[in-house]
Amino acid sequence: MVVSATNTSTDVLASRLLPGGNLAKNFSDLLAASDLWSALTNSAVIAVGTTLGALLVSSIAGYGFEIYHSKGKDRLMAVLLLAMMIPFAATMIPLFRLFASVGMLNSWWAVIIPAISTPFLILLFRQASRNFPHEILEAARLDGLSEVAIFFRIYIPTMRSTYSAAAVITFMAAWNNFLWPKVILLRNDSLTMPMLVSNLSAGYVTNYGVLMLAVLITSLPTMIIFLVLQRSFAAGMTGAIK
């Protein structure tokens, strides 16, 4: 991918394995063929907004399911897990009609809201909360902390590794999301990076050097996020608490 981004389309099709000198030309052609900065901004806002919203909503739900445990919550959790079996294509049309009826087409919120609460993230936080020391909760309550203060001042700092794992999963899914943004974002200035890459390969003639450069730029944020948080990601997926 990196090598192809520096070569011409002819070199890419010829399977050239050595870096070329066409990187600047490919970048200028990419800027001429698409609104790169707008797509980067749209993807960044959607990915960051989705990640922050999902971490807050899903962690509160997972915390509530486990810390305030009851049989009724177990049944509700079973319903949420069953929802994971429903393919997104089955809910896409009702979602589109819902957002159209409230005038939210072509808005970032229409992409962010459906993704801020997922059964997988709720289950992840619920399972991690099983290892949370309840003695800390009791001590905090005796000290007079409210339940909200306990969550934000004790639970969140203690569960850093789980939040990191959830952040990596959510950011990568939101950044790479293609189908729903393609359906709900109808204007050209609402393109995200996966949509931009798709458009570059949809013409009669594809410049593969430019296409591979766009793919490289699209891949960099998720690669950086994962590399920065990989240790916390591994610890969070195994339920570690620090």
Rank of each mutant, 00 (worst) to 15 (best):
A24N: 10
P194A: 08
W108H: 15
L145Y: 13
I46K: 06
V168F: 12
A89C: 00
A47R: 03
K25N: 15
T8F: 12
F96Y: 14
N106P: 05
S15G: 06
Y68N: 10
F27N: 04
M237I: 14
S43L: 04
M195N: 08
A100D: 11
A165N: 00
L142R: 05
A100W: 12
F27Q: 01
L82V: 02
L216E: 06
N176I: 10
L179G: 12
F125K: 06
L121K: 06
G64V: 00
L30A: 09
G236P: 04
M212L: 12
T6E: 10
W180M: 06
Y63C: 11
V102T: 12
W175H: 02
M172P: 12
L82A: 12
I224A: 12
R187T: 13
L229V: 06
D189H: 08
L186M: 12
A78D: 07
T218W: 10
Y204A: 13
I217W: 03
A78H: 10
S129L: 08
F151C: 01
Y68K: 01
V2R: 09
L98F: 14
R75H: 13
A14E: 15
S146G: 11
F125C: 01
Y63L: 01
P19N: 12
N199K: 10
P181L: 01
P119Y: 00
T158C: 12
S34H: 05
I136N: 02
A33T: 05
L80I: 00
A139F: 14
F125I: 03
T162E: 07
R16W: 06
R16A: 09
V183W: 08
A167H: 04
E135P: 03
F88H: 07
F151E: 00
S9M: 02
M85A: 14
R126A: 03
V79K: 04
F88V: 08
L55P: 06
W108A: 13
G144A: 09
T206P: 04
F88E: 14
V210A: 04
A54W: 07
S107F: 08
T50W: 03
L196K: 03
G64D: 05
A214E: 01
A61N: 04
V79D: 00
Y204L: 07
